[in-house]
Nucleic acid binder design. Structure first.
Lengths: 115, 115
DNA sequence: CGCATATTCAACCATCCGGTTGACAATCCG
DNA sequence: CGGATTGTCAACCGGATGGTTGAATATGCG
């Protein structure tokens, strides 16, 4: 089976742009959680949180596994790697060779997705 | 003078979520540019690019300085630090390895010299 | 001055986004 | 079975977003 396509930077950054979703990711740093438990601290409907989780899953930032009637949400921090790598292209490099830098990013990303 | 308030992660990530804006940032890695020149490679109106630049400026990712009738756009990579730091709280991934980049450049050079 | 250039402003439009509510599906349990 | 629990789906709503066009502003230049 072909692996799912790596989510785009568009998708990842957009997912990270919402404070509720970032808070969810932070919560998941401690442990996997069921959807209901994720929703518990927020003053939002369960459906709203469910949609946020969907967004995070589409960005590859979490995975969801159904066990019984409970869906467990798990942080997938590797998905942040693409974004981190992209951002680190700024600030830490002299503007040496942009084309080479972009090829380097691609090689880094393909390494990451093969792991 | 009080410094401008640091843009929120919301603002920064949202600014980075658009491919046109990321492309602009990449262009600015090479050099400061006038608005018109930034717009040149894109199939969008100048006004659209102007709005993108506004968004990037509000996120602190670029600054704009008017000299004559030309507004020069300058990358402000420090603005990405907040986002980078936040993300690195997740992946235990080590920051991008400059040595790896240099080895990549060398391997590319030797490949290229054979073609 | 008067025209060309550089950029933004303003109004408008279609679409997306984050949220709601209510119905539905699936699963556990008495 | 039947009821409670878990989670998603569908429709809807208001506001944000990304784009357009045309007018307005500011500067440079002959």
């Amino acid at each position: 089976m072909a692996p799912p396509p790596a989510p785009s930077l568009d998708t990842i950054f957009a997912a990270l742009a919402d404070p509720t979703r970032r808070a969810i990711l932070t919560m998941l740093l401690e442990d996997d959680m069921a959807v209901t438990d994720v929703a518990q601290p927020f003053q939002q409907s369960l459906a709203a949180i469910s949609k946020h989780l969907q967004t995070l899953a589409e960005a590859g930032l979490i995975s969801r596994e159904k066990r019984g009637r409970v869906i467990w949400c798990k942080l997938e921090p590797d998905a942040m790697r693409a974004a981190t790598v992209w951002m680190q292209g700024f600030g830490q490099f002299e503007p040496l060779d942009l084309d080479a830098f972009e090829r380097f990013l691609e090689s880094e990303l393909s390494e990451g997705s093969e792991g």
